[in-house]
């Protein structure tokens, strides 16, 4: 089966001489939910821009479902729906018109475009606002509008460049649910995000790009398995006077009711709880100190201050 997106030796040198991509190779399988992560300025948006024809490549090849953008650009474009990082709709246009016009640019007849606009605006909770100018929407609504717009021609590949930036938790979760449904229905999704929890939860495969080079390209499960140890934060029911001695685990007392425990890959949580129970320690809740993907991400790209 042809990959949904195939990049080979992709190079981008901007006019100011900055090389944004140093010959990257990447394949995204059909039906995948793929995370493309990297620090700010790593080359994610340039990669997405080239794939979606908004940025001219310097050299290399790009194929979308087998359509080469050099020889079959229109067919490649027709396969892609793009949700860019910045709002890029006419803020003075009514919501429904933005969708219907976008569908028109893909050759979708007007009546069908209205039907699809109604469906996607309903699914994303914007139907009631369909006659409002886009500038009247909240930030979260604008993000959802861009997703609806990207879907209105029913693309096989949906590319989302930080789709949940600045969106509150409740809406973010509803967007995750929606995207998971779209993916389950067969749409390939490529996602860049600031929220590594989002990538960990949604994506099956991942590439990490840094300084215009792919530094990691694997499945999410394999990547997370590489984590040597994770730090768990335990909330204890009874106060703790000092750090307890738990055989096989490094511990650190944070305060009377909070204990940090480092669990290495060869240890397991059952053993930890057995050790805790043996010392009559009751755990009321448990969480990871940091997101597991975030720990790996920082390790892979070096701690440069900005995640993704």
């Amino acid at each position: 089966m042809l990959p949904a997106l195939s990049l080979h030796n992709l190079v981008k040198v901007y006019k100011n001489g900055i090389t944004a991509l140093h010959g990257i190779d990447l394949e995204v399988a059909q039906g995948d939910f793929f995370a493309l992560l990297g620090p700010n300025g790593a080359g994610k948006s340039t990669t997405i821009g080239i794939a979606s024809s908004l940025v001219n490549k310097t050299s290399g090849t790009v194929q979308v479902f087998g359509h080469d953008i050099d020889t079959d650009l229109a067919a490649a474009k027709a396969c892609i729906g793009l949700v860019p990082q910045e709002f890029n709709f006419n803020v003075f246009e009514p919501v429904v018109e933005i969708l219907v016009n976008q569908a028109g640019y893909y050759g979708v007849p007007r009546r069908l475009a209205f039907e699809r606009a109604e469906r996607y605006l309903n699914q994303l909770g914007l139907w009631e606002r369909r006659h409002d100018q886009a500038r009247m929407l909240s930030g979260g609504m604008k993000r959802r509008l861009m997703i609806a717009r990207a879907l209105v021609h029913e693309p096989r590949l949906l590319i989302l460049d930080e789709p949940t930036a600045g969106v509150d938790i409740e809406i973010r979760h509803s967007m995750w649910h929606f995207l998971a449904e779209i993916n389950a229905a067969g749409t390939t999704i490529i996602l860049t995000t600031h929220y590594l929890e989002e990538a960990e939860q949604l994506c099956r495969n991942i590439a990490i790009i840094d300084h215009g080079r792919i530094v990691e390209n694997t499945s999410m499960r394999q990547l997370l398995n590489r984590l040597d140890a994770q730090t768990l934060v335990l909330d204890l029911l009874h106060p703790l006077a000092a750090s307890p001695d738990l055989p096989g685990f490094a511990t650190r007392r944070i305060d009377d009711h909070t204990l940090e425990v480092e669990v290495t890959r060869d240890a397991n949580i059952n053993t930890l709880f057995a050790a805790l129970s043996a010392q009559d320690m009751v755990v009321s809740s448990l969480r990871n100190k940091t997101n597991r993907l975030e720990e790996l991400f920082v390790r892979l790209v070096g701690n440069k201050g900005n995640a993704t």
Partner: peptide
Amino acid sequence: HNIEEMLVAP
């Protein structure tokens, strides 16, 4: 940037 709506389309 809404010119991009047309530029990404075929």
